[in-house]
Simulated assay, not measured.
Amino acid sequence: MKISVIVPAHNEEEGLPATLRSLLAQTVPADEIIVVDDGSADRTGDVARSYGATVLRPPRNLGSKARAQNHALPRCRGDLVLAVDADTVLAPDYIERLAPAFDDPAVAIAAGNVQTRRTRTVWERGRSIEYLFGFHFHRPIQAGARSPMVCSGCCSAFRRDVLLAYGGFPERTIVEDMDLTWTAQIAGHQARYVGAAVAWAADPETLPYLRKQVRRWMAGFFQNVRLHLPRLLVRKPLLALWVCLAVLEILLAPLWWAAPVLLVHAWHVPLPEALAWWAATELLLLTPPLLYAARRRRIPYRQVLVNLPCVYATRAVNTYYAWRALITELLLAPLGLATPLTTYEKGRPDTRAPTEAGGEAVPR
Rank of each mutant, 00 (worst) to 15 (best):
S4P: 11
S4F: 05
V7L: 09
E13T: 15
E14M: 13
R21S: 14
R21E: 14
S22W: 03
L24T: 12
A25V: 07
Q26A: 11
I34C: 10
D37Q: 05
S40Q: 03
S40A: 07
T44D: 03
S50A: 13
S50M: 07
P58H: 08
N61V: 05
K65P: 00
R67H: 03
G78M: 05
D85S: 14
E96N: 05
R97I: 08
A99W: 08
A99L: 12
I109M: 15
A110D: 04
T116Y: 01
R120I: 09
R120N: 11
T121S: 07
W123E: 09
E124I: 09
G126E: 07
S128Y: 12
I129Q: 08
Y131N: 15
L132Y: 05
F135A: 07
I141P: 01
M149Q: 09
C151V: 10
G153T: 07
G153K: 02
C154E: 06
S156D: 01
F158N: 09
R160W: 01
D161G: 03
D161Q: 11
G167I: 12
A187Y: 00
Q190A: 14
A191E: 00
A191W: 03
Y193F: 15
V198P: 07
A199S: 15
A202I: 01
R211E: 11
V214N: 02
R216N: 04
F221N: 06
Q223N: 09
R226A: 13
L232E: 01
R235N: 13
L238N: 04
A240G: 06
L245R: 14
L245Q: 13
A246R: 14
V247L: 12
V247K: 03
L251P: 02
P254N: 08
L255C: 10
W257D: 02
A266S: 10
P270E: 07
E273A: 15
A274D: 03
L275V: 08
A276Q: 14
W277T: 10
A280D: 11
E282F: 02
L283I: 01
L285N: 03
L291G: 05
Y292K: 13
R298T: 04
I299L: 13
Y301A: 14
V304Q: 01
P309S: 14
A313W: 12
A316P: 02
V317K: 04
V317W: 02
N318T: 12
A325W: 00
I327Y: 08
T328D: 08
E329I: 09
L331Y: 08
P334E: 05
L335F: 04
G336C: 10
T343K: 02
E345L: 07
P349H: 06
P354D: 10
